[in-house]
Amino acid sequence: MKQATMTCRPLLISLLLLAAGPGLAGSADPGSQPVREDELTVLLSMPGDPQRGQESYRLCRGCHKADGSGKAEAEYPQLAGQHARVLLKQMADVRAGRRDSPKMNPFIEHGEVSSQELADIAAFLENLPVPSAIGLGDGRQLELGKHLYLRDCASCHGPNGEGDGQRFYPRVAGQHYPYLYRETLESRDRGRRNANPEMVRVLKHYVDSDIAAVSDYMARLRPAKP
């Protein structure tokens, strides 16, 4: 939440850039992936109210559950404790058609939830405790998983899986294994269209069992409380 309000100034500048013409905008993101300045710009500039967010989140509870824990078998991601900026980017991507989510789409369309409601929901979710009961893998390849993670993933997702909201790197610690596995696989195979290009390059050399190993490792990570 605090982060979101602090970004007001660069956002204003990017809004100006946007107004000046599409060619100028889009290169301001510090991360390696260009983020289009559209609804996301608006979302990040809106202070979110967790209390209102709890009420608006009603629409989402049928899949992501009241405590944000999602559902491992269903590949409904765990959202509690995720960085608000990450949540907002993913929501904006889905609404703008940059990330496919046929199951969720009708529930998060523009006619169903306003931008303000999404900002509120993100503020609410960010402050929820990460649930401890999480879908895990078989635990047989954790050494390999650790090796791969620290070599290829930790630079962005953090040594303890904590992610980095400023740069839109998702927190992966405590996420359900089946979801992590599917998203990593989809990112490698270009099914997830908004995947980070640098991450896709790293993943090119991964076989499915590497992905299983690193996903199992990520799901079990628990960052120290900030």
Partner: peptide, 25 residues
């Protein structure tokens, strides 16, 4: 529980566990 195979969210999400609903639900 809904039916995650077909993407049916559980009804309690919007209509509440006891079916009481709220506001537009």
């Amino acid at each position: 529980e809904g039916n995650s195979k077909n993407g049916v969210p559980s009804c309690d999400g919007c209509h509440d566990e006891d079916g009481a609903g709220s506001g537009k639900f």
